[in-house]
Simulated scan of single mutants.
Amino acid sequence: MARARGGDSVSRRKGGGTKGRAGRARQVYVYTEGEVTEPEYIDIIVRSGTWAEPGRTVQHHIENPNAEGKHRKPLRMVQEAVRTLRRVEREAKDAGLRRDKDWNWPQVWVLFDRDDHQGIREALSLAEKEGVHVAYSHPCFELWRLLHYTNYTATFGGVCGDANSRLRSRPGFAATYGRGVRTVTEQQSKHVREGQVLTPATDDELSRYRTAKKHAQKINDGHSTANPNDWDPYTDMWRFVEDGLLLSGY
Rank of each mutant, 00 (worst) to 15 (best):
N229F: 08
V46G: 00
K214M: 11
R47D: 11
A135H: 03
R210H: 09
G55W: 02
P200A: 06
A163G: 13
L146D: 07
T176R: 05
D203V: 03
D115S: 12
G195R: 00
I120R: 02
D236Y: 09
S165I: 03
W109M: 00
A201S: 15
W105Q: 01
L245T: 10
Y31C: 02
N229R: 13
V36N: 10
N104L: 03
G15P: 04
A201Q: 15
G17L: 08
T185I: 07
A4G: 12
D94C: 06
Q59W: 12
A2H: 05
E89L: 02
Q27H: 12
L198P: 05
D102P: 08
G55D: 03
Y29Q: 03
A163S: 14
D113C: 01
A95T: 09
V30K: 02
Q107N: 11
G55P: 02
E186T: 11
L75R: 11
R72W: 13
S165K: 13
R3W: 07
N104I: 06
V108T: 00
E33Q: 13
I62G: 01
R12D: 08
L247M: 00
L126D: 04
E63P: 05
L124F: 10
I42R: 00
H148D: 04
P106N: 09
T32M: 09
R168T: 00
D113Q: 01
V10F: 13
V28Q: 01
G17A: 11
